[in-house]
Simulated scan of single mutants.
Amino acid sequence: MTRRWQCFWLVEAALLLLLCYQIVTSPPLLVGVVSGVLALILGAHVHFWKTLWLTFGSLLIVISVFVNPTVWIMLFLAVLAGMHLFTGKSSRVGPWARKHFIAVTTREPGKKAGQQHHQPWFGDSTVGQTQFEWDDINMIVAAGDTIIDLGNTLLPKGDNTVVIRKGLGKTRVLVPVGVGIAIDHAAVIGTLSVNGQELPLRNEHITYYSDEYDTATRRIHLLTNVVVGDVEVLAV
């Protein structure tokens, strides 16, 4: 089973537990479910108005469950997973499948001014193909794979910062050889891979410094927070 399917079943199980908790803690929903179950039991054991009891019990259970928005989220995720399973076209399933590509170049220091940028919540994204003026990267992604390619540009001298906060998905950062790397990473479930060396994490926090970090004229400080997903850093 791939990591994406593991994440899917983990999310579905968490939503199911949340749904059960919401039903148990909501008296109207709990009464509806219990009454529906009793009506089904009664309909299965009596011959008088059997169809009526079975229909009434089924309606009570369905209404009590489906008025909760959590079950609709579960069904939505299940439909997306089914489309991916039977069509095999994951690039067309879900908003996170949209490709988003940004890139890097440098500029002379100028007058500082505030900026505001829109970021997609979902979608596989890549930073480092089309050219744009370099600025520290600060990303928040709900779900999707992310690639940050810094190998095709000359980073400004000194410290450069990349901040990524993500719910689900894999992150890959490509750093030019000779650039000092500092990693500050935290994950609930995932793996940190630095130049082929893998470190599994289970609700852990880890820091890493490359050998040339103190002497390098250009440095990258990578700060990542992931709920479920892998982070891979490669020198290119």
Rank of each mutant, 00 (worst) to 15 (best):
W5C: 12
W5A: 13
V11L: 14
E12W: 10
L18H: 09
L18N: 00
C20D: 09
Q22L: 04
S26K: 01
P28I: 03
V33F: 02
V33Q: 01
V34A: 13
S35H: 08
G36D: 06
L40E: 13
G43S: 10
K50R: 15
L52Q: 00
W53V: 03
W53L: 07
W53Y: 10
L54V: 10
I63V: 00
I63Q: 01
S64A: 14
V65I: 10
V67H: 09
N68W: 08
L75F: 11
G94C: 04
P95L: 12
H100N: 15
F101P: 11
I102R: 15
T105Q: 14
T105W: 08
T105D: 15
K112V: 15
A113K: 10
P120K: 11
P120C: 14
F122V: 02
V127Q: 08
Q131E: 13
F132T: 12
M139Y: 11
G144T: 09
G151W: 05
G151I: 09
P156R: 09
G158I: 01
N160Q: 00
L168F: 04
P176Y: 01
V177R: 06
G178A: 04
I183R: 12
G190L: 11
L192R: 02
V194R: 07
R202I: 12
E204M: 03
T217Q: 15
H221M: 05
V226E: 05
